[in-house]
Design a binder for these strands. Structure first.
Lengths: 187, 187
DNA sequence: ACCTGAACACCGTTCAAGT
DNA sequence: ACCTGAACACCGTTCAAGT
């Protein structure tokens, strides 16, 4: 890659990051090009679609997600507390900016999306945490990581759209957690 | 209201209904005015915001929701089956067209939205169903109708965005249902 | 009182012309 | 090989002119 092309690439990613944080995933591409000090054509040359740009901004996102899952598993928390902790991190990660959750939700089932691989990492991380729960005999039968990922991401998307804060999101997560854990049996 | 104004109003609602079904809640307002055979200014006179138009299209929506709740309660189904039946209807009602669920989710917490009253009916209907469950001693402590409404609407929004069909939505609803019902205790 | 449609601002996207 | 910026299409929104 030519030196000026590399510099433009980096400036675009940086400008996009700021724009997404300020105006959400629907931030104006024209504006991003302007902030980066390049013509709109340059943006399109580097990132043919908006989702390509979003994927570039999410560069180290997947690693953070995987690391968070590892941390929760290593924490030695009881199943319920582990889920509380894990979902709190998912909420933080999936909700980095307005509209991010919606992107994750729709990219999860769209193999052609540039964000799809990131979503697979999220599903994999959920799977690890659920297996940890299952190993302790606390996972309800039939609960699968794909569904849980969709469900929690959907909640983040809803909270995002409604402008709910963390405290208002928690009761929804509590219902989900109760639905994931096996009912303590009477044996 | 003048006769021609009334006719324009009705033509706009009809055109909007068709446009929303075809292109979702983001359908072009210009296109709706064109279909209705009126100038764009006329649309704005009748419906100052897009949400005013959506609210008009949802005219008999709230009654359908309330009627569905009544039908489920009168059905005499067991708590779990009643919830399955009820959520199926909520999914159908909240997902009338693409983007409708997102509108419901964001209007639920926005008192100024023209759709807010419709959402209150949905919350009320959920409350009736949950009270019916509670009367049978099957409701988990701390589960409230506002949260359940948000949660289910959020799932519909996610399914909508991901293009999931009814079968792919059900596992998520199953988790929610398990989280709503009280665990059968050992006494 | 209501309607029309031109006008403006903004945005996404493309592409011929440049270096 | 890459960049620029004019150009086009489309949309939301307003408002002066009409009836």
């Amino acid at each position: 890659m030519r030196a000026d092309a590399q510099r433009n690439h980096d400036k675009l990613v940086e400008a996009a990051q700021a724009a997404f944080r300020e105006n959400g995933a629907q931030a104006s591409l024209d504006d991003i090009a302007r902030r980066a000090g390049v013509g709109p054509g340059t943006l399109y040359r580097h990132f043919p679609t908006r989702d390509d740009l979003i994927a570039a901004v999410m560069r180290d996102w997947a690693e953070r997600v995987a690391a968070d899952a590892d941390a929760v598993i290593a924490s030695g928390l009881e199943p319920r507390e582990a889920l509380v902790e894990w979902f709190d991190r998912v909420v933080a990660n999936v909700g980095i900016y307005r509209g991010a959750a919606a992107k994750v939700v729709s990219a999860m089932d769209d193999v052609a999306s540039p964000i799809h691989r990131k979503c697979q990492v999220l599903v994999g991380a959920n799977d690890q945490v659920l297996q940890h729960i299952a190993a302790r005999g606390a996972l309800r039968d039939g609960v699968e990581s794909r569904e849980v990922t969709r469900l929690v991401s959907g909640v983040v998307g809803a909270a995002d759209q409604a402008g709910l804060d963390e405290a208002a999101t928690r009761p929804m997560l509590d219902i989900i957690i109760a639905g994931i854990l096996r009912a303590p049996d009477a044996s």
